[in-house]
Simulated scan of single mutants.
Amino acid sequence: MKSLCGIAAVGLFGMATLASAQAQNAPGILQSILQRGTIRIAVLGSLPPYSRVMPNGEPEGYDIDIAKRLAEALKVKPEFIISDIPARVTALQTRKADVTIADFTRNVERSTSIAFTNPYLVTTMRLLLPANSPYKTIAEANEAGIRVAISRGGTAERAVPANMPKAQIIRFNTQADELNAVLTGQADAMAEDNFYNGNAIKENPGKLREAEGDLARAEIAIGLPAGDADWLRVLNLFVDQFNASGDNKKLFQKWFGFEQPPIQAKY
């Protein structure tokens, strides 16, 4: 009986060892991309000028151009996966996407389940209001207990309650829905990064303005599945060279219309 148990234990150990070896020999993300000739990139469909889907079904924007540069550097074709804010993380966790390039703020909470590259952009979250709003500052808006539209799963989920505990939070899946809520009076304000806000103000002349003060600092980076050090190494090299070469500044100027602010952290 003991011999049979011993044989069974050895068999189970052998199966576990084989499974571990197979897992170790499985191709990494980079190798999989090179083998199939495409890179799957999760992007947002309605966040101009970062990204948006045109009437012909093709995406365009700052993040889209970055994605194309990455595919070009790897000598593969980009395959875009249109996502919303909450799905940016799950697309990586489920390995449906190889990367997420979608105005994606890196933080500790997200980094417990996915990984991030070095940042390619640094921005601040601010409050976007109707032009006729009586509130000049975030503090005034908080005291009034205004209705603030935010994105589900976005940085604002933490930043707005932390800075505006008296505000009423209204959650949406896309920034387009947030903006529509502000323009139609369903919300009194929305919380987004100042680059998005500037574009919204430009596209809706005389209708919008920002409140004074910042809600949060945001380091925008490329997201990737956790646990693949080789893929992270390659992506960080791409981002570092993209920043150092001046290509990032050129693309930012193209889509936002002004000079890119410094990416280096200031403490």
Rank of each mutant, 00 (worst) to 15 (best):
P130E: 07
P49V: 01
F80D: 06
V53G: 02
V108C: 00
G145D: 12
L74W: 10
E109G: 12
Q93H: 03
A19H: 13
I146W: 08
Y50F: 15
S3C: 04
S20L: 13
S51Q: 10
L18S: 11
T105I: 08
R36K: 09
N142F: 01
N107M: 09
N25W: 06
L4D: 12
S111V: 06
T117F: 02
I82P: 01
N118D: 15
A16V: 14
Y50G: 09
E72T: 13
I66A: 06
I64T: 09
D84T: 14
E143P: 04
R126Y: 03
V53S: 01
G45W: 03
R88S: 05
V89E: 05
V10H: 06
N142M: 06
P59L: 03
P130R: 04
E60P: 08
I41F: 10
T17S: 14
A26F: 00
V53C: 02
K136W: 05
Q93T: 06
N56S: 12
L18K: 07
T124V: 10
L12A: 08
Y135C: 03
A26W: 03
R52H: 11
Q35F: 00
L44G: 05
D103Y: 08
I114Q: 05
D98I: 02
A42M: 05
S51K: 01
L70F: 00
L127D: 05
Q93D: 09
A8T: 10
I138A: 06
A16E: 13
A139H: 05
V53K: 00
F104H: 03
Q35W: 06
D103I: 08
V89D: 11
A9K: 03
I146T: 04
K68G: 07
R69L: 12
L74N: 07
P55S: 04
A9G: 03
A87K: 09
I33C: 01
G37T: 11
A91H: 04
V76N: 01
E60T: 14
A144M: 05
A8G: 07
T90F: 12
E143Y: 02
I66R: 09
K96G: 04
L129A: 04
I39M: 00
K75V: 12
F80Q: 02
P119A: 04
R88T: 13
A21V: 14
M15A: 15
S83N: 03
I146L: 07
L4V: 08
C5R: 15
Q35C: 05
N56F: 11
T123G: 07
T124A: 13
A131Y: 14
Q22P: 02
I101L: 04
K75D: 15
D65E: 15
L12P: 09
D63R: 10
T90P: 01
L18T: 11
V89W: 02
F104W: 00
A19W: 07
